[in-house]
C-alpha cells in the first residue's frame, strides 16, 4: 500500500476548489449558526439557489457575471422567504422550515413540471465557459512537483476560489468585530435580553440569514463553475450536515473555524476514500466484504456519528475556547 500516494490524494483534495467551496458554505453557516444561533438545516438550498440562478441565467442568454449576481440575489431572497415566517418564533421553527424547504426545492427543480427551466434531473451543463476563457494557465498543462500535480484548469479554479475564501473571511471578520456583530452574538446568547436592550432582534436575525444566504450562494456558484454542471441531486440534504460537521469541527463562532474545519474534514474524507480504494485494489476479499459503494455509505455513517460525538464531547471544536462553551449550557 502506497501511503505517500494516499496522503497525496488526500492533500490534493484538501487544497482543491471543492474544499474552498465547502469552506465558503461553512463560513456562511458559521455566521448564521455559530454567531447568530440560527438553526439553518437547509443550507444546501442556498447553494442550489446560487448555482441554479447562475446556470439558468446563462441558459437564458445572460452573461455568466449577470448569472452570478442573480444567483446571489436569489439566495438572499430565499433567506428572506425562510426568515419572514419563522424568525419571530422559537428556533425550532426555522430548523423545521429550512430542512423542509431545502428538500422541496430539490424535488421541484427535479420535477418534470420545472423541466422547461431547470432541465429536470438532467440539469444544466457548460454554462461557465466565460470563466474558463479568463484562465491564464494553459488548461492542458500540469503544475506541481513530482506526482503532486494539478492541471491548469484546476489551478485557475483553485486560485479564484481561495481568494474568494480569503475575501469572505475578511468580510465576516469585519462584520463580527463591529457593533453589529456584537448584537448578533447577543441574540445568540439570549434573544429576550437583547430585545430588552432595545435591539430589533428579528431584523438582525433576518440580516444574518440573508447575508449568510448570499455567501452560501457563492459557494454553490463556485462548485457549479468548477464542475460546469448543475443537477438537482448534487443538492442532497447530506451537504448541509457535512457543513455542520465542518463548522463545529473547526469551532463554531470563531472566524477561521470554518476554514480549518473544511481543510481537516476534506483531508480526512478524501484520505479515507484513497485508503479504501487502494486497500480494495490490493486486498481482494475486502471487496466482497465492503463494496466501494458501501465504503462511501460507511463514510456518511461516520459523518453523522462524528457530528454527535463533536456536539457531546468537543462542542468548541478545534479552535473554540473550551471555557467559553462551559459558560452556559448551550
Amino acid at each position: 500500500m502506497d501511503l505517500v500516494a494516499i496522503l497525496r490524494d488526500g492533500f490534493l483534495a484538501m487544497i482543491g476548489p471543492v474544499t474552498a467551496a465547502y469552506a465558503i458554505a461553512a463560513i456562511s453557516l458559521n455566521l448564521q449558526f455559530g454567531y447568530t444561533g440560527l438553526l439553518n438545516f437547509g443550507q444546501v438550498a442556498f447553494l442550489a439557489a446560487g448555482a441554479y440562478g447562475t446556470s439558468i441565467t446563462v441558459e437564458a442568454g445572460g452573461s455568466l457575471w449577470l448569472g452570478i449576481a442573480i444567483g446571489i440575489m436569489l439566495a438572499v431572497l430565499l433567506g428572506a422567504m425562510l426568515g419572514l415566517p419563522t424568525l419571530r418564533l422559537r428556533a425550532d421553527y426555522l430548523a423545521i422550515t429550512t430542512i423542509a424547504v431545502a428538500e422541496v426545492i430539490r424535488l421541484v427543480v427535479r420535477s418534470s413540471w420545472a423541466e422547461p427551466v431547470t432541465n429536470g434531473v438532467f440539469g444544466i451543463q457548460g454554462f461557465a465557459n466565460a470563466f474558463f476563457d479568463l484562465n491564464p494557465f494553459p488548461p492542458g498543462e500540469t503544475y506541481g512537483i513530482g506526482s503532486w500535480l494539478v492541471t491548469g484548469r484546476r489551478l485557475w479554479v483553485m486560485i479564484v476560489s481561495w481568494v474568494v475564501v480569503l475575501l469572505l473571511l475578511l468580510l465576516v471578520r469585519r462584520l463580527i468585530n463591529s457593533p453589529w456583530g456584537r448584537v448578533v452574538k447577543a441574540v445568540r446568547e439570549d434573544e429576550d435580553a437583547t430585545r430588552a436592550l432595545g435591539k430589533n432582534v428579528f431584523n438582525y436575525k433576518l440580516q444574518s440569514l440573508m447575508i449568510g444566504g448570499a455567501i452560501g450562494a457563492i459557494a454553490g456558484i463556485l462548485l457549479a463553475i468548477e464542475q460546469q454542471n448543475v443537477t438537482p441531486d448534487a443538492y442532497l440534504p447530506n451537504i448541509t450536515f457535512i457543513l455542520y460537521v465542518i463548522v463545529i469541527l473547526g469551532g463554531a463562532g470563531t472566524i477561521v473555524g470554518p476554514l480549518v474545519g473544511a481543510l481537516v474534514f476534506q483531508f480526512l474524507f478524501f484520505t479515507f476514500d484513497a485508503f479504501m480504494a487502494s486497500s480494495q485494489a490490493e486486498i481482494g476479499w475486502l471487496n466482497t466484504l465492503i463494496s466501494p459503494a458501501e465504503a462511501g455509505q460507511i463514510k456518511l455513517i461516520l459523518v453523522g456519528a462524528g457530528l454527535m460525538a463533536l456536539m457531546v464531547f468537543r462542542p468548541q471544536g478545534i479552535l473554540g475556547d473550551p471555557d467559553e462553551v462551559t459558560l452556559d449550557g448551550r
Binding site: 438553526l39 428556533a91 430548523a95 455542520y244 456519528a305 457530528l307 454527535m308 456536539m311
Partner: peptide, 12 residues
C-alpha cells in the same frame, strides 16, 4: 445543541 445531535443521529 440537542437538535444538532438529533440531526447527526438521523444522518448516521
Amino acid at each position: 445543541s440537542m437538535m444538532v445531535v438529533s440531526i447527526g443521529l438521523a444522518f448516521a
